[in-house]
Amino acid sequence: MTATTVEKAATTQRAATVEFRGLRREFGATVALDGLDLTVAPGEFLALLGPSGCGKTTALRMLAGFEHPDAGEVLVDGEDVTRVPAHRRDAGMVFQSYSLFPHLSALDNVAFGLRMRKVRTSERRARAAELLELVGLADKGDRYPHQLSGGQQQRIALARALALRPRVLLLDEPLSALDAKVRLTLREEIRRLQQELGITTLFVTHDQEEALSIADRVAVMRAGKLEQCAAPAELYGRPATAFVAEFVGTMSRIPGVARDGSVEVLGRRLPVDGEAPAAGEVDVLVRPEAVQVRAEAEGDARVLATAFLGAVVRVTVRLADGTEAKADLPAHEAAGLGAGAAVRVSLPDRPVLVAERTQK
C-alpha cells in the first residue's frame, strides 16, 4: 500500500463526535440498555467490551440505525440522528459474518454501496480499486468470496464499509470467526488503517485482550450499564469496580479484614486503593504479576499447578484458608516450584483494590 493511496482515501474522511445520551432499550422483560451515557471523540477508537447480553451490540446497532431506543438520543456531531434511517446515517458497518455478496467479485462487493448511490461506473471502480490496495488486496479484485480466505473476506468487508467515506466506522465482533493467528494480524491491520484514516471507530468485542490491544479507550458494560470507560492501562491498573477488575484480565481474590482505612491481608497491613470499605471481612483483588511467591519449607501455602506462558510461568497456589491465588513469575523464580511445594505468598507494599467478601 502506498502513501498516496492512504492520502486519497483520507482526503474526504471526516471524523465525527458520537454521543449516546440516556439510551434505554427493552426487549420484553429484558433491559438491553439502561440509561447509557457515552461520548466518543473525533478520530477515537473506542471498544465496547462486556459479556454476552450486556448491551454493547444494541448500542452499536442504535448508532447504525438498525435499532431505535425507547428513550434517549444518539447524536453525531451534535445532530440528533435517533430517528434518522440507517441509509442516511453516514456510518460504515462491518459484521461478524462478512455479509459479502457471493455472486459479486471482490471489487464489485467493495463498489456496491457506490452503485446504490448512482456513482458512475468509472469513478466507483477506481475508488474500489483504491480501497482494495488500502487493505492489501489489490490483486484480488476479480476473486469471488468463496475464493478468498476468511481474513481476506473480512478485509473486503472493511473496504466496502470505507468506500462511502463514512464519518463513523462500526465493527461488530468482526474477528470472532477467524482463527487466532489471522485474528491477531487483522486486528493490527484494522488499527493501522483507523489511525491513518483518522476515522471515529466503535468496535464491539467480548475479548478483553482484543479490546485492550486495539483501542484508545475501552468502555466496559454490564447489564445495560456503563461500568467504566478509560484508556487500557487505566482500566487494567485502576479498575473502578470489582466487576471491571475481574472481567479485564486475571484477578485473584484473597481474604482480608478491613479496619481504619486499610486492610490486613497475608499477615500485613496495606492501604486501600479508592474508597475505604467499612470495617469487616473483604476480598483483596490482586493481579498475578503482583502476587509474590517464594519457596519456603515452613510456608503455609502449597503449589497446585504451574503453566508456562512464554515470558512468565503462572503458578497457582492454595493458601492456608483454602483460597486459590495465581502468580506470574519469571521462569528462573518458578524453577523448583512443582505441585505440592511449600511456599510463602505475599503482596507488595502498595494500595490494593478491595471488594465485598465472596461467600463460598
Rank of each mutant, 00 (worst) to 15 (best):
M1T: 09
T2G: 15
A9D: 03
A9Y: 03
A10C: 12
A15I: 07
A15N: 12
R24E: 14
R25K: 15
G28H: 07
L33A: 05
E44P: 01
L49S: 03
P51R: 12
S52L: 09
C54I: 02
K56C: 07
L60W: 01
R61I: 02
G65F: 02
F66Q: 05
G72I: 05
G72R: 02
E73G: 06
V74M: 02
L75M: 11
V76I: 15
V76A: 01
D77R: 06
G78T: 09
D80H: 08
D80V: 09
V84E: 03
A86V: 10
V94K: 00
Q96R: 10
Q96N: 09
S99R: 10
L100D: 05
L100W: 04
P102T: 06
L107R: 14
M116L: 15
M116S: 08
K118F: 03
K118R: 15
V119K: 02
A126G: 11
A126L: 06
A129S: 15
L131A: 09
L131E: 04
E133H: 08
E133R: 09
L134A: 09
L134G: 09
V135L: 05
L137E: 04
D142R: 15
Y144P: 02
L148Q: 04
Q152W: 05
Q153I: 09
Q153E: 12
I156N: 01
R160M: 04
R160I: 08
A163G: 03
R167I: 09
L170T: 00
L170V: 07
V182D: 00
R183F: 10
T185N: 14
R191L: 03
L197M: 10
L197Q: 11
I199V: 15
T201G: 02
L202N: 01
L202I: 15
L202Q: 00
F203Y: 15
E209K: 10
E210K: 08
A211P: 04
L212G: 08
L212H: 07
M221F: 13
A223N: 13
G224R: 03
C229Y: 00
A231G: 13
P232L: 08
Y236L: 11
R238C: 02
T241G: 02
T241S: 14
A245F: 01
F247L: 06
V248H: 03
S252A: 12
R253C: 11
R253E: 08
P255A: 14
V257C: 01
R259T: 11
V263N: 00
V263W: 00
E264N: 10
L270G: 07
L270S: 06
V272F: 04
A278R: 14
G280E: 10
V282L: 05
P288E: 11
Q292S: 13
V293Y: 00
V293W: 02
R294S: 13
A297F: 07
E298G: 14
E298A: 15
E298I: 08
G299Y: 03
A301Q: 05
A301N: 05
R302Q: 14
V303K: 02
L304R: 13
A307Q: 15
F308E: 13
L309A: 15
V312M: 11
V312N: 12
V317W: 00
A320M: 09
A320K: 12
D321E: 11
E324D: 13
K326A: 12
A335P: 04
A342D: 12
V343R: 00
R350L: 14
P351Y: 11
V352P: 01
